[in-house]
Design a protein around this nucleic acid. Structure first.
Lengths: 354, 354
DNA sequence: TTGAAAGCGCTAACAT
DNA sequence: ATGTTAGCGCTTTCAA
């Protein structure tokens, strides 16, 4: 049973303050404070007494009061579309871990790609004096962010939508053009000639361009029906793939511009009786955790979440510490991660008429 | 290019305070404060002027200062083993969403099941005057939590390890015994007689017992070799399944006590040339997002993350608001979610000698 | 080595 | 309807 009222005491009653310590020990607040934070201008004996007593009564500094005078809260905010998107948890984990090591805590804000909600959040974060903000995806209006940035709120954009840049806010980006190139080269190397892409335009412009241009350099044109629009969700990958498989000359390989759509495409293949990779190769982009556990495991262009998170957090911490030689932006290179979902094209004539 | 130093101004310089407003308008702080928070004891004209001016200079209340006097920060903490575990993101999302609607922000703490780290976190949270804490999994030592709870830090345990209970801290739990029963009944209904379980004992005792007892009620004993120890990770499900398939009389169905291990078991089946569900049925528990997208989609005992998160957050908010009639704990019922990974047992004699 | 006093921005009790 | 005052718990001069 649980009776809150029986033993409820306000935390105020159990939290000792510096003043309490000072009074009990017959010294001044200043001395207690100095002793507590290890300054040298306190006699050995006094320090011992202070520390001992603080320990005894379980003294905890009130970080709020400290924040009020020091004008910093040791709090960072992490704004993202939604933590339920499997791309983000690993990043969140890493950010929090690095932040913790620097004594920062992190609050997270799921903006659901809602600009209005994002603005509200930002307002609140400013009111709460968070020391800095990491913003991912397209979780906000850039203009709102830039306004706050110029009001001197430290911000870092991380993996911001690739068709937009900020002229003033430091940015950590993935080299998505390279990602598209890597995907194209991988398929070309395997011998594919008839390839398709499932892509969320205009948001994923760079990876699209990287893919398209690399094919062109190899003398291949990406026909319009080989470019299928998705919306980054699994289901859109599924239906886009269905459209591709229904073509008179379906592709022998599909590059889905993120893993989630690639997984949808694999489902579509199965449901239409096709075998991956025997009948069609599929390659994704992101390397979310589950991709390794699909049947077959998904070949993908991997983005190092750790690298992204680390770069973003460190860039932000540099701003906070006013380190002047800030690298204004960081470009994280993706890497090819070959797995069984891609292989050489099928040899039966039907699919060779590219 | 990015030159912080060129336009850097301390936020202090751009943030107006109540005092600033009062001075500029020639009224007292109290009046400004009252006008701002819509109290009735301010003349219409004065209120208009205050609001207008506040708007003009972009006044934002300093939540820190407010927190210092009101002794609450409108901040909740969410402690969990790691957000990278696919079970948690949906819950985190939901908690944050509900908290936001009540004007709370949430900080998250990945404890990595490290009791020492957990204690550090808790210490910090207390120092920062978070208003309350939701603790999931076995991310902490219960004793540390109970100590803080008795020092009047509001806490809710959510999906706490099932082999442990707190006598004093309110708790939201999944009815894991029922979960085990549902799994057993489902397999029994399909006609299985030779079943195995992959389980992380003693942590998953309840689901184990629910499963075992239901089989016994049906007249079936769970032989020792049909109980394989896992550690909740995918790889452990894989190797446990391998051991099962290597038995002289392998099971026709496997209950993996979480989805992640179930997925590992499916991989093992494939790698040993077995077809799921034709040769062996597999059922999991959790319903993580990816389970629906495996090949075949995984039958599972679903836990509603929304329900868990909602119950936990509301229970916590009730504590914060000192609502006395607190339900000391909530039990969330799981549900069977049939998908193609389970079917009737194979008919070939070889596997019928249970 | 120690202490006194002012202030961070707000709230709340108590005047006027 | 408006103002005065005293904190919240800490940091930070400036004195002693």
């Amino acid at each position: 049973m649980y009776y809150l009222s029986l033993y409820y005491v306000c935390r105020k009653d159990v939290m000792a303050t510096i003043y309490d310590l000072a009074k009990a020990l017959g010294v001044s607040q200043t001395t207690v404070a100095n002793a507590l934070k290890g300054k040298s201008n306190v006699s050995v004996e006094t320090r011992r007494r202070v520390l001992e007593y603080a320990q005894k009564v379980g003294y905890r500094p009130n970080v709020l009061a400290r924040a009020l005078t020091q004008r910093r809260t040791l709090t960072l905010a992490f704004m993202l579309p939604t933590i339920a998107n499997p791309f983000y948890p690993e990043i969140a984990e890493e950010i929090e871990c690095i932040a913790r090591k620097h004594n920062y805590q992190v609050v997270f804000c799921n903006t659901h790609n809602d600009g209005e909600l994002g603005r509200q959040y930002l307002d609140r974060l400013v009111s709460r004096w968070v020391d800095g903000v990491i913003v991912m995806g397209l979780s906000m209006n850039l203009a709102d962010l830039e306004a706050q940035f110029q009001q001197s709120l430290p911000i870092v954009l991380c993996d911001w939508q690739e068709n937009e840049q900020s002229a003033i806010i430091p940015q950590v980006s993935v080299d998505f053009k390279l990602a598209g190139q890597l995907a194209a080269r991988h398929l070309l190397t395997l011998g594919h000639r008839r390839m398709a892409i499932i892509v969320d335009l205009p948001l994923q412009t760079l990876r699209f361009e990287g893919f398209r241009l690399t094919l062109e350099e190899a003398g291949l044109q990406l026909a319009p029906e080989m470019i299928q629009q998705g919306n980054s969700e699994l289901a859109s990958g599924y239906s886009a793939a269905q459209r591709l498989f229904a073509l008179e000359h379906p592709p022998t390989a599909i590059f889905a511009a993120n893993d989630w759509m690639a997984i949808g495409a694999m489902e579509a293949a199965y449901d239409m009786g096709l075998q991956v990779p025997r009948d069609v190769s599929i390659i994704g982009l992101d390397d979310i955790v589950v991709s390794a556990h699909m049947r077959p495991p998904l070949t993908t262009i991997a983005i190092s979440k750790q690298q992204l998170a680390k770069a973003a957090t460190e860039l932000l911490l540099k701003q906070l510490n006013k380190i002047e030689d800030i690298a204004s932006s960081v470009l994280v290179p993706p890497t090819l991660l070959p797995r069984p979902s891609t292989t050489v094209p099928p040899v039966d004539g039907e699919k060779q008429n590219a």
